[in-house]
Nucleic acid binder design. Sequence first.
DNA 1: AAGTTCTTCAACCGCTAGCAC
DNA 2: AGTGCTAGCGGTTGAAGAACT
Length: 332
Amino acid sequence: MGRTPCCDRKGLKKGPWTAEEDEILVNYIKNNNGHGSWRSLPKLAGLLRCGKSCRLRWTNYLRPDIKRGPFTQEEEKLIIQLHGMLGNRWAAIASQLPGRTDNEIKNLWNTHLKKRLLCMGLDPHTHEPFASQPHYPSTNSSPASPATRHMAQWESARLEAEARLSRESSLFTSAQHCTKSNDSSDYFLRLWNSEVGDSFRKLTTRDDKTACCSPVSQASASALTTEAGLNRAAFDTMAGDQAEDVDCKSFIKFSNTEEEGEEEEEEDHVLIGAGSDSSCSNDMEDSSDSSALQLLLDFPINNDMSFLEENCGGHYTTDPAMLSENSFICRL
DNA sequence: AAGTTCTTCAACCGCTAGCAC
DNA sequence: AGTGCTAGCGGTTGAAGAACT
């Protein structure tokens, strides 16, 4: 659907925004209770910018709910975890971090987090150690199947739905929090809890038994579990101040020291790498669809998924027994 | 102090989904 | 069904500042 770039017109300004332009844009949106059509906004507001540029400036910088300042350790951890699940879907990741923009998260990933993974010998695309993935080059590949991708899409959609619910519920008083959340009629969550979702879960549960026997499934397992991969000490360190300067040697040394004597020692790598859709999903070739599905279902059990619990007033369970029945659904 | 290299991040570009006609 | 438009997404770029030599 070819269309001429909106910025091609002569006379339109490019480059950094001035304080005056910012003020004009903010005032216009304030005075009009919203931006309306971005395409017509510049003309109406008296800006010599294209609508796209205005939208970007607003969403990435001027929006009042934007959180400024450095990322916290918790935020960084969350981004790493979510990247393992969602891949380079920055908008989906950003939906889990209120006040942070996709652009900001993308920049953080490219400038800091990716390097930290690399320093730890982990492939930033798959979150797997380089040595353990000889058959899956770092780009455009990961052992997963169409069914896995399907499941990943469900999970991705669920995460986004949770983010929406979380935002909505935050508007209510704490006393009303759960009730309101429960009443929210999010389409995805309804679908997930409907017969469709139920049969989908049954399908994936049924496949569990075959899954655990496959060597491929084990590879998938390492790609899908956080705790089974990057140990907590290293993980905390990675997201922490110690690694801030990406001093690889000292960082790795520190991590190794931290994990000594820890039970996580038995598994020394891998964050999560399921269905990194933008970079690898399409090339996934796997003979063990069901195993990957099962592993996807298992994924949150061992993870630091407290943010999900928080989002749903603690209605998530991390109990494997419960999860095997209900997956990781927020019970409404 | 000056020149060079590296890092950061705001902004741009191209593409696509979804919608209206 | 085909076309055009908008909004949004992810990848990339380049200016500015920081760090290094």
